[in-house]
Design a protein around this nucleic acid. Structure first.
Length: 154
DNA sequence: GCCAACGTTGGC
DNA sequence: GCCAACGTTGGC
Protein backbone atom coordinates (compact mmCIF):
# COMPACT_ATOMS: atom_id res chain seq x y z
CA UNK A 1 0.00 0.00 0.00
CA UNK A 2 1.44 3.31 -1.12
CA UNK A 3 0.43 6.93 -0.84
CA UNK A 4 0.68 9.45 -3.66
CA UNK A 5 0.04 13.02 -4.68
CA UNK A 6 -1.54 13.68 -8.08
CA UNK A 7 -1.37 17.14 -9.60
CA UNK A 8 -4.12 18.51 -11.77
CA UNK A 9 -4.76 21.96 -13.13
CA UNK A 10 -8.28 22.81 -12.02
CA UNK A 11 -8.88 24.72 -15.26
CA UNK A 12 -8.45 21.41 -17.03
CA UNK A 13 -9.86 19.03 -14.40
CA UNK A 14 -10.73 19.99 -10.83
CA UNK A 15 -11.92 18.08 -7.78
CA UNK A 16 -15.43 19.33 -8.57
CA UNK A 17 -15.15 17.81 -12.03
CA UNK A 18 -14.35 14.52 -10.30
CA UNK A 19 -17.30 14.94 -7.92
CA UNK A 20 -19.54 15.39 -10.96
CA UNK A 21 -17.99 12.59 -13.04
CA UNK A 22 -19.81 9.32 -13.69
CA UNK A 23 -19.15 7.04 -10.71
CA UNK A 24 -16.96 9.90 -9.41
CA UNK A 25 -14.18 8.23 -11.34
CA UNK A 26 -11.79 9.16 -14.13
CA UNK A 27 -8.84 7.85 -16.08
CA UNK A 28 -5.58 9.69 -15.45
CA UNK A 29 -4.28 10.05 -18.97
CA UNK A 30 -1.66 12.29 -20.52
CA UNK A 31 1.37 11.30 -18.44
CA UNK A 32 4.42 11.76 -20.69
CA UNK A 33 7.24 11.55 -18.20
CA UNK A 34 9.20 8.32 -17.74
CA UNK A 35 9.70 8.67 -14.02
CA UNK A 36 5.99 9.15 -13.49
CA UNK A 37 5.15 6.31 -15.84
CA UNK A 38 7.45 4.05 -13.88
CA UNK A 39 5.76 4.99 -10.62
CA UNK A 40 2.46 3.92 -12.14
CA UNK A 41 3.85 0.78 -13.69
CA UNK A 42 6.04 -0.46 -10.86
CA UNK A 43 4.57 0.80 -7.62
CA UNK A 44 0.96 1.87 -7.89
CA UNK A 45 -1.60 -0.65 -6.83
CA UNK A 46 -5.37 -0.76 -6.68
CA UNK A 47 -6.57 0.78 -3.41
CA UNK A 48 -3.53 2.98 -2.99
CA UNK A 49 -4.59 6.42 -1.85
CA UNK A 50 -3.61 9.77 -3.32
CA UNK A 51 -4.01 13.43 -2.60
CA UNK A 52 -5.69 15.40 -5.38
CA UNK A 53 -3.64 18.58 -5.75
CA UNK A 54 -4.64 21.71 -7.63
CA UNK A 55 -1.67 23.27 -9.44
CA UNK A 56 -1.16 26.36 -11.62
CA UNK A 57 -4.14 28.17 -10.14
CA UNK A 58 -5.06 30.98 -7.78
CA UNK A 59 -4.95 28.76 -4.71
CA UNK A 60 -2.63 25.80 -5.17
CA UNK A 61 -3.17 23.05 -2.61
CA UNK A 62 -4.66 19.69 -1.76
CA UNK A 63 -8.36 19.49 -2.52
CA UNK A 64 -9.22 15.94 -1.51
CA UNK A 65 -8.38 12.25 -1.55
CA UNK A 66 -8.79 9.70 -4.31
CA UNK A 67 -8.16 5.97 -4.49
CA UNK A 68 -6.44 4.14 -7.30
CA UNK A 69 -9.24 2.06 -8.82
CA UNK A 70 -7.41 0.46 -11.73
CA UNK A 71 -3.73 -0.44 -12.11
CA UNK A 72 -1.60 0.86 -14.98
CA UNK A 73 -2.80 0.14 -18.53
CA UNK A 74 -2.03 1.69 -21.93
CA UNK A 75 -3.07 5.32 -22.41
CA UNK A 76 -5.06 5.39 -25.68
CA UNK A 77 -4.37 9.10 -26.29
CA UNK A 78 -0.80 8.23 -27.32
CA UNK A 79 -2.20 6.60 -30.49
CA UNK A 80 -4.64 9.39 -31.37
CA UNK A 81 -3.10 11.60 -34.05
CA UNK A 82 -5.44 14.43 -33.25
CA UNK A 83 -4.68 14.40 -29.56
CA UNK A 84 -2.28 16.80 -27.86
CA UNK A 85 -0.49 13.91 -26.25
CA UNK A 86 -0.12 11.87 -29.44
CA UNK A 87 3.22 10.07 -29.59
CA UNK A 88 4.13 8.94 -33.10
CA UNK A 89 6.98 6.84 -31.77
CA UNK A 90 4.83 4.65 -29.54
CA UNK A 91 3.80 1.29 -30.98
CA UNK A 92 0.42 -0.32 -30.39
CA UNK A 93 2.03 -3.65 -29.58
CA UNK A 94 4.48 -1.97 -27.22
CA UNK A 95 2.80 1.07 -25.71
CA UNK A 96 5.14 3.58 -24.20
CA UNK A 97 2.64 5.45 -22.00
CA UNK A 98 0.34 4.18 -19.30
CA UNK A 99 -2.52 5.53 -17.27
CA UNK A 100 -4.48 4.56 -14.19
CA UNK A 101 -8.04 5.08 -13.03
CA UNK A 102 -8.87 6.99 -9.87
CA UNK A 103 -12.07 7.32 -7.89
CA UNK A 104 -13.05 10.07 -5.51
CA UNK A 105 -12.78 9.14 -1.89
CA UNK A 106 -13.43 12.51 -0.31
CA UNK A 107 -13.39 16.17 -1.19
CA UNK A 108 -11.89 18.15 1.67
CA UNK A 109 -14.06 20.73 3.37
CA UNK A 110 -11.37 23.22 2.48
CA UNK A 111 -8.23 23.36 0.36
CA UNK A 112 -5.11 22.56 2.35
CA UNK A 113 -3.03 25.24 0.69
CA UNK A 114 0.53 25.05 -0.53
CA UNK A 115 1.21 27.96 1.78
CA UNK A 116 0.02 25.96 4.77
CA UNK A 117 2.07 22.92 3.75
CA UNK A 118 5.15 25.11 3.46
CA UNK A 119 4.77 26.17 7.07
CA UNK A 120 5.60 22.59 8.02
CA UNK A 121 8.39 22.12 5.49
CA UNK A 122 11.16 22.30 8.09
CA UNK A 123 9.48 19.89 10.47
CA UNK A 124 6.85 17.32 9.65
CA UNK A 125 6.94 17.64 5.87
CA UNK A 126 10.69 17.59 5.18
CA UNK A 127 10.32 14.80 2.63
CA UNK A 128 7.30 16.08 0.78
CA UNK A 129 8.43 16.28 -2.84
CA UNK A 130 5.88 18.87 -3.86
CA UNK A 131 7.64 21.35 -1.58
CA UNK A 132 11.08 20.77 -3.05
CA UNK A 133 12.53 23.25 -5.48
CA UNK A 134 12.13 22.46 -9.11
CA UNK A 135 9.88 19.47 -8.60
CA UNK A 136 7.63 19.13 -11.60
CA UNK A 137 6.48 15.51 -11.50
CA UNK A 138 2.74 15.17 -11.88
CA UNK A 139 2.67 12.14 -9.58
CA UNK A 140 4.88 11.87 -6.51
CA UNK A 141 5.03 9.35 -3.65
CA UNK A 142 4.09 10.49 -0.13
CA UNK A 143 5.44 8.96 3.08
CA UNK A 144 2.83 7.33 5.32
CA UNK A 145 3.76 9.57 8.24
CA UNK A 146 3.41 12.68 6.09
CA UNK A 147 0.14 11.41 4.71
CA UNK A 148 -1.28 11.11 8.22
CA UNK A 149 0.04 14.52 9.20
CA UNK A 150 -1.56 16.21 6.21
CA UNK A 151 -4.88 14.39 6.69
CA UNK A 152 -4.98 15.78 10.21
CA UNK A 153 -4.44 19.34 8.99
CA UNK A 154 -7.94 19.40 7.57
C1' DG B 1 28.47 10.26 -24.51
C1' DC B 2 28.54 15.33 -24.06
C1' DC B 3 26.13 19.46 -23.82
C1' DA B 4 23.67 23.53 -25.75
C1' DA B 5 19.18 24.62 -27.13
C1' DC B 6 14.63 24.20 -26.48
C1' DG B 7 10.07 23.12 -24.33
C1' DT B 8 7.34 22.52 -20.21
C1' DT B 9 6.00 23.18 -15.47
C1' DG B 10 4.24 25.86 -11.91
C1' DG B 11 4.67 29.36 -8.27
C1' DC B 12 4.58 34.05 -7.98
C1' DG C 1 3.82 37.43 -17.95
C1' DC C 2 8.21 36.20 -15.73
C1' DC C 3 11.59 33.04 -14.67
C1' DA C 4 13.95 29.10 -12.27
C1' DA C 5 14.28 24.31 -12.67
C1' DC C 6 14.33 20.36 -15.05
C1' DG C 7 13.59 16.83 -18.95
C1' DT C 8 14.26 15.94 -23.75
C1' DT C 9 16.34 16.44 -28.17
C1' DG C 10 19.79 16.32 -31.49
C1' DG C 11 24.29 17.72 -33.48
C1' DC C 12 28.84 16.52 -32.95
Amino acid sequence: MHYWLLKSEPDAFSIDDLVAAPKQSTCWDGVRNYQVRNFMRDQMQVNDQAFFYHSSCAQPGIAGVVTISRAAYPDPTQFDRKHDHYDAASKCDDPRWLMIDVKLQRKFKRIITLDELRRHQEQELKQLLILKRGNRLSITPVEASEWRFIINLE
